[in-house]
Design a protein around this nucleic acid. Sequence first.
DNA 1: TTGAAAGCGTTACCAA
DNA 2: TTGGTAACGCTTTCAA
Lengths: 342, 342
Amino acid sequence: MATTGTTSSSNRASGSITLDDVAKIAGVSPITVSRVLNQPEKVAAKTLEKVQHAIALTGYVPNLLAGGLASRKSRLIAAIVPSMANSVYAETITFFSKLLRESGYQVLVGESGFSEKQEESLISAVLSRRPDGIFLTGINHSALCRRLLVGANIPVVETWDLTPTPLDVVVGFSHERIGQAVAEYLIAKGHRNIGLVSATDHRAQIRQRAFIEMLAKHGITGISVSHVPLPTNFKAGRDGLADLLDNGFGKGAVFFSSDTLAQGALAEAQARNLAIPDQLALVGFGDQPYAAYTYPSLTSVRFDRAEIGQRAATALLSRINDEVTRENVIDVGFEIVERQSC
Amino acid sequence: MATTGTTSSSNRASGSITLDDVAKIAGVSPITVSRVLNQPEKVAAKTLEKVQHAIALTGYVPNLLAGGLASRKSRLIAAIVPSMANSVYAETITFFSKLLRESGYQVLVGESGFSEKQEESLISAVLSRRPDGIFLTGINHSALCRRLLVGANIPVVETWDLTPTPLDVVVGFSHERIGQAVAEYLIAKGHRNIGLVSATDHRAQIRQRAFIEMLAKHGITGISVSHVPLPTNFKAGRDGLADLLDNGFGKGAVFFSSDTLAQGALAEAQARNLAIPDQLALVGFGDQPYAAYTYPSLTSVRFDRAEIGQRAATALLSRINDEVTRENVIDVGFEIVERQSC
DNA sequence: TTGAAAGCGTTACCAA
DNA sequence: TTGGTAACGCTTTCAA
């Protein structure tokens, strides 16, 4: 009953308090209320106070649908990730959102589940909210996706990968170089019997190919490979390692396409009483933080999730604000981390 | 150059294709295009085809800001969770979103970080997008939050807890009963020396109190307690257990307020060469799926994340669609799971 | 089955 | 520093 402000005589009145209601109560014009909300520095102190009082009194909540329609600024950023249940993406988005929120933006997340078709429908759905920018995972997008994005005419940041020709900006690391680096790392450790357990998503495949090619370059061929379905989980990792071991893979090293897989594999190694890393060395990807507290000797490829999120946010903001930006390809790098017991 | 549709003579033309553009190309009125999009069954087959062709031709993407403003239906659902980096919330939201997407809604997620102040500002920010419903974590909301929610006049589902007096609907489980059940479980297992490592969030506190009270009821007092800061992580769990052990806690059982803490504690137990569960029994909360693949004998309180997300979505949808709903308190229950070696 | 007119609640533009 | 007027792109209402 506090909301007595249904002053409109329209036949479609919403009942909720509008900027006009606040203006009437404050005794100013609607545009002044709008200024108090958006550019308070342009309003006289006295007016400001009057209006703010009216806002507090009415419990007015601005309508961003109307505001966005009029200003063509939705203050919304869209983000498409394969899965929020996967902590690497979730944490990246957390950092991304945090920075953007500080600049007054909200982030609308969609989960594509590694599917191109789903990405299409998500992008299309999300563009109908007229986001001011969009965060994408990966650099492979269907022709329709690209057309939609170009048509939307907003800043686009692609992530988790690198390409010399991004749609707009790209923030990530090279999966090819990771595959090569892990191969070189294992060779340097003296391994000659090497296996691979990999998911089938695009980026994992690129790591796999580079890995195998680099090994071949060093004369190591006949790599045992086991492919596991998406989404990856502990069971898949365990099964993947079991697959290798059951098919004659002995003492050696195995590269997994994610830490989740490597963790699952550890259970299998334990069940078979294989000493880690002496009899079996495992290398993951993603550097899940819990690795440090649970298993010694699990090596992983680390990249900085916070940095990806933050650089992506900064890139979008600078483009939205029309700052002159030269950097279109941002390589956040990676490193191979050997976990010590702790 | 394909977008030649800037037909408006306005001084604020957007350049992007509008429903009017499509209407002109199809040779129908704008409202017919709108019907094709929203109620295609009310349009003659021939008209339908004509319009769909024009839509495809132009690559028209509807503007939901305008549509939402006119119809007062944003097709947006807001969700506030403590943290998306925590997989229990992330997975719940994934299920929640999936069901809603199938009904044409998108989910806007905000992270409150267990802070009431942050929840206030998030709710306020999110309500300005005029969501058609809102998902909340927990049942404790500040007076301002409640006022905002009531003012918004939309369906609200509270989750992760239970109360006889929800704002609207509540979907969750009883933390009090969990505390009691774990106490009874440990007593039945013959434990008399019992410890607790708990975070300081509201729901963890309720579990803690019920746990200690139930133990007292069975004559077990002097529980060793260690509190750890939010957000919980492996290190905190490890430190918490170390704290207990360093202060004279010997052979016994420890209840952790989350699986994350219990997992971290396992590392400490291993470092001290304590046999699990013979010398030290650990009980977690949340039933992280990886527990099954890494540690035998880690007991946990399980609840169904998928069910929470799905029931919450269903509850919102039925309210949005004005279905007669009797159920306002939905208890999804929980169970204590003993992990077996695998 | 289709359409004309009138909003939805806000901001841009220009003027005072 | 403040305000009037006209959009923004869509849907509702009512009529044909």
